[in-house]
C-alpha cells in the first residue's frame, strides 16, 4: 500500500503546481487584492490509496477539493486523471471519474427530492443503461451502503444524519467513480455514527477498488483511514508522507504542533498547548519567507526572508529550512 510500490503506473489523480487565486475586494474604492487559496500544490494519488489532507480552517483544503471536482477553475497548473489533464475534459466527463462526499448531509441532499431520485440523478445525467434498470442499480447501491429499500420514496428530512450521509455516499458511488473526494465526511455527524460511516467507507473502498482523498481536520480519522497524509498550510503542502511516518516522526514543526494539539481522553491534562501562539495569518497578507514563521516555535532568521524549498528525505517531502541540509551546511 505504500506509494512507492505502485509508482510504475500513472497516478490515478495528480496535480501539478496547482494554483487558485481569488481577487478579493477590500472595500468599495480600494483595489482588489489577490488571495492565494491554493498556492502551488503538487500531489500524486495512486489507485487504492487514501490520501489524507489535513490543515486548519481556511488553509485552502476545500478550494483544493473543488478544483479536483472541476467545480472551480484553477488559475494555474493542472489536475490529471490517469495522466490526462482535466482541462481537456468537460465537467460531465470529470464527474464520471471523480465524485464528492460532502461534509454536511443536511445541505448536500435536495430536500425536494426523494432518496430514489437523488441517487438516480447521476445515472440519468449520464444516460447509463436504460431507465428501467436504474431502480435496480440504485437499490443495489443503497443495499451496499446499508440503506433499507423502503427509504427509496422517503424525503431526506425523514432520515437521520447517518442515513443521509449514506445516501450521499450512494449517490457518489452509483456511477462507480475511480476517485472519491471526501470533504470532512464525518465531522457533521454524531460521534456514534462517525465510526459507522468510516467503516462503511473502508468496506466500500475494498469492495469497489476506490481511491479516496480524505479531507479532514480530525487527525484520528486520518490516522485510521489514510495510507498517506499531506499537511496543508496557507495553500501549500508543507509535509507529505505515509501515515505511519507522519504520526511516528513528524518533520515539519507545523505537523508536530498539529499532533500535539490532539486532545487526550485523560482527565486533568487540560487543553494541550500547541505552542502556535499567534492566530492564523491573514491569507491576503501572507507573511514573507516561510509563511509559517510567525507561529513556528523553531523559527530561524532565514525563515523570515526565504521561502523554504521542497526537500525529500526518507520518502517524505517537507518544506522547512530545518531539514534543508544544504542550507544548514552553508
Amino acid at each position: 500500500m505504500s506509494p512507492t510500490t505502485t509508482s510504475a503506473t500513472p497516478p490515478v489523480l495528480e496535480t501539478r503546481d496547482l494554483h487558485c487565486t481569488f481577487q478579493v475586494r477590500q472595500g468599495m474604492f480600494k483595489p482588489k487584492k489577490p488571495l492565494h487559496a491554493v498556492n502551488g500544490i503538487s500531489l500524486k494519488v495512486h489507485k487504492g490509496e487514501v490520501l489524507g489532507l489535513v490543515g486548519e480552517s481556511g488553509c485552502g483544503k476545500s478550494t483544493f477539493a473543488r478544483i479536483l471536482l472541476g467545480l472551480q477553475k484553477a488559475t494555474a497548473g493542472d489536475v490529471r486523471i490517469d495522466g490526462h489533464a482535466t482541462t481537456d475534459f468537460t465537467r460531465k466527463q470529470i464527474s464520471r471519474r471523480i465524485q464528492p462526499i460532502f461534509q454536511d448531509p443536511y445541505s448536500s441532499l435536495n430536500p425536494r427530492k426523494t432518496i430514489g431520485t437523488i441517487i438516480t440523478l447521476p445515472l440519468s445525467v449520464h444516460g447509463v443503461g436504460d431507465p428501467s434498470s436504474w431502480r435496480g442499480t440504485v437499490e443495489k447501491m443503497m443495499d451496499l451502503c446499508g440503506l433499507p429499500k423502503r427509504v427509496y420514496d422517503s424525503f431526506p428530512n425523514q432520515l437521520s444524519g447517518g442515513q443521509r450521509q449514506r445516501v450521499a455516499i450512494a449517490r457518489a458511488l452509483v456511477m462507480r467513480p475511480e476517485v472519491v473526494i471526501c470533504d470532512e465526511p464525518t465531522s457533521a455527524l454524531d460521534v456514534s455514527v462517525q465510526s459507522q460511516i468510516l467503516n462503511l467507507l473502508q468496506d466500500l473502498r475494498a469492495e469497489l477498488g476506490l481511491t479516496y482523498v480524505l479531507i479532514s481536520h480530525n487527525l484520528a480519522v486520518v490516522e485510521h483511514m489514510a495510507t498517506s497524509v499531506a499537511v496543508m498550510y496557507l495553500g501549500r503542502i508543507v509535509e507529505q508522507t505515509d501515515t505511519d511516518t507522519l504520526f511516528r516522526a513528524p518533520k515539519h514543526p507545523y505537523t508536530e504542533a498539529l499532533l500535539a494539539s490532539v486532545l487526550t481522553p485523560e482527565p486533568g491534562k487540560g487543553v494541550p498547548d500547541a505552542q502556535l501562539g499567534a492566530t492564523f495569518p491573514n491569507p491576503i497578507n501572507p507573511p514573507p519567507g516561510c509563511t509559517f514563521h510567525t507561529r513556528c516555535p523553531k523559527v530561524m532568521d532565514v525563515c523570515r526572508q526565504i521561502a523554504p524549498r521542497e526537500i525529500t528525505i526518507d520518502g517524505s517531502t517537507v518544506e522547512c529550512h530545518l531539514h534543508d541540509r544544504q542550507l544548514n551546511a552553508a
Binding site: 467545480l71 465537467r91 470529470i94 464520471r96 465524485q99 460532502f102 445541505s107 448536500s108 449517490r171 456511477m175
Partner: peptide, 12 residues
C-alpha cells in the same frame, strides 16, 4: 448549498 455542488459534480 452542497446539493447544488453535488449536482454540478454529478455532471448536470
Amino acid at each position: 448549498l452542497d446539493y447544488v455542488a453535488a449536482a454540478s459534480a454529478a455532471g448536470c
